[in-house]
């Protein structure tokens, strides 16, 4: 077991935020979220944080760990701190803070609804492992009229929005996850073309690629935004 220090962002109601430290005994193989839950269970019942699935399918537990956006349920403690060291956990940026480590992801969910991001989609819409962003070529199925349905890669965790330098200055910017959701669907729907090709759409991106660096779920939003620009340009050329 390791003895480490968690430095935790605290904020209740309208009080100003501060940091509080907790000494915790952890198994270094445990995940950062496990340590936060242990602090709540054994040290301080007033600590609030978001979590649900604990295996990276729900997107609830995004936080900043040592200043970097992480899905804390799949970030091993041994990968972000040493025995005797300190790790800092803070809420995501660019969202309203509700309390302690909890942010309000409402703005992201509204944008995902606005771009009609599919909640489930055909397996053939997204690639297999190691295939970049292109759809897979061949999927074995039981009969020709069958199509596998899967949950998308994007878990709507908000991590890409927190890391995005444009989102930090422009809350109206659609941001990486919603634009990536348009790219997956293509631009056949005129309303999606209009959203992508707007001031708060693909042209607002500065190509910082922070989103792709922090995305915990293989979405690679930065590349998808670049591909969406290509799609928008092609549409415009055809329309001209």
């Amino acid at each position: 077991m390791w003895k480490i220090t968690y430095r935790v962002h605290r904020q209740k109601g309208n009080e100003p935020p501060h940091y509080e430290t907790f000494q915790v005994e952890v198994d270094p193989e445990e995940y950062v979220l496990d340590g936060v839950e242990k602090i709540w269970a054994s040290e301080d019942r007033s600590l609030t944080f978001r979590h649900a699935c604990h295996h990276s399918t729900c997107g609830a537990c995004g936080m900043r760990v040592n200043g970097v956006e992480k899905l804390t349920c799949i970030t091993k403690i041994k990968d972000v701190v040493q025995d005797g060291g300190t790790l800092t956990v803070e809420p995501l940026r660019n969202f309203p803070v509700v309390s302690d480590l909890v942010v309000d992801l409402g703005p992201l969910y509204r944008k995902m609804a606005a771009v009609q991001a599919p909640a489930v989609h055909a397996l053939s819409m997204t690639p297999w492992e190691g295939q970049n962003i292109a759809p897979p070529a061949d999927i074995p199925m039981r009969s020709a009229d069958e199509e596998y349905i899967r949950l998308p890669d994007c878990i709507e965790c908000g991590i890409c929005i927190s890391a995005c330098p444009v989102a930090a200055t422009d809350p109206e910017y659609f941001g990486p996850a919603p634009l990536a959701a348009i790219q997956i669907q293509g631009l056949d729907k005129p309303e999606l073309l209009a959203l992508a090709d707007s001031q708060e759409g693909v042209w607002r991106c500065h190509s910082a690629f922070e989103c792709s660096a922090v995305c915990p779920s293989n979405v690679d939003p930065g590349r998808r935004i670049m591909d969406l620009r290509r799609q928008v340009s092609a549409k415009r050329l055809k329309l001209a």
Binding site: E29, E30, D34, H55, R150, L151, P152, D153, S217
Partner: peptide, 26 residues
């Protein structure tokens, strides 16, 4: 089970007393 880009294996079944924090048994 498949789920998004994951495979999830489960599970076991045992008894405990304390339910708020259940440590992982490697």
């Amino acid at each position: 089970l498949p789920q998004r880009r994951l495979a999830v294996v489960g599970t076991t079944s045992f008894s405990i007393e304390e339910v708020d924090y259940v440590p992982i048994d490697r």
